[in-house]
Amino acid sequence: MNSLYKNYIRNSLILLGGASLFSIFLNVMDIMSERTSFAQEQEAWNPYLSEWSQWAGTVFVIIFVVMGLNTFLHYKNVNKKTGVFIKQLPVKYSNDFLFRTVSSIIFIGVTLTVLCIIGWVMYSPYFAEGENYFKQMWDTAYMTFAVMVLFYSIGLVSQQIIGIPLLAICAPFAAFFGMLGSFIGYAAMPYAIRELAIFKIALNIMDKFFEFICFYGKINPEETLLIIWSIPLFILAAILNSKIDYSNMGKLFLFRWCRPVVYVIGSLTFAFSMQFVVNCFEVRSIAAVIVTFILSLFAGFKIIQYFVRRFD
């Protein structure tokens, strides 16, 4: 295996290590706070156990962030100064693309497995005997794997078209998650659910995403179907990869039309996402919703503008 591929694996392993440490930290904090609050009372463990499935949500969010970072690292390698260095190396472009794609899919699987094992090791002492949590965990893991592979394939296609699509489009989400963490998770909600609230809302968002991908429930969200959907996208990405010669290397957008598309999609996504926040405050007035929508549309535009100016 050549040094370039080893470099990709090294980056992925660093991310995997980071994700694992983060998940251990989250769970240790979780378990410690539960122990402090409920002491020895067996009964008190029940709500804790019932919430265990939130672990899947935690994994989902962690892997989403990690995949975003992984894609970003790959982007950095392909489209920036380092990209010029990589392009000059005696490595066939198609092999480079294939290796990055396959290694990323393996990386998703490995990350998921490691996170599940961590979850299993940390939570299994609290499971009632005979309950089949293990199977439930792996079912969730498979669902997460399928969705992530689809997300990755979408990301890869758009990466070929737009220089740094994930960062630009996900910028409003980053801001959104940040706001949730600071305003809602730690201020508006009671202490007992603070830690879990972020993941509940994150899961809600993912559910909406999932519905969107599946045409709002018209197609049954079978996990395997998602993986099958990914295949033509991977092929499309490979074709695009072979067509683009990276003359615009270092530019944020490889094509001029990508800029308005990112602004429009990003601002709208942010504005719609902010409706979750509005719902949290139980705003019922249509006028208030419209005003917050317009305001968040503007805010989304400014956030994307910040990222575009920073990276273009």
């Binding site: 050549n2 040094s3 370039l4 470099n7 100064k81 380092t82 010029v84 260095f85 000059q88 005696p90």
Partner: peptide
């Protein structure tokens, strides 16, 4: 082909000896 670009484009966190090993693994 050896190519020396006008500005550094190597992996910024690599050490010099890592770059030597990288080159050994590529060329």
């Amino acid at each position: 082909i050896g190519y020396v670009a006008d500005s550094n484009s190597y992996f910024p966190t690599y050490r010099v000896k890592d770059m030597v090993n990288f080159y050994k693994g590529i060329y």
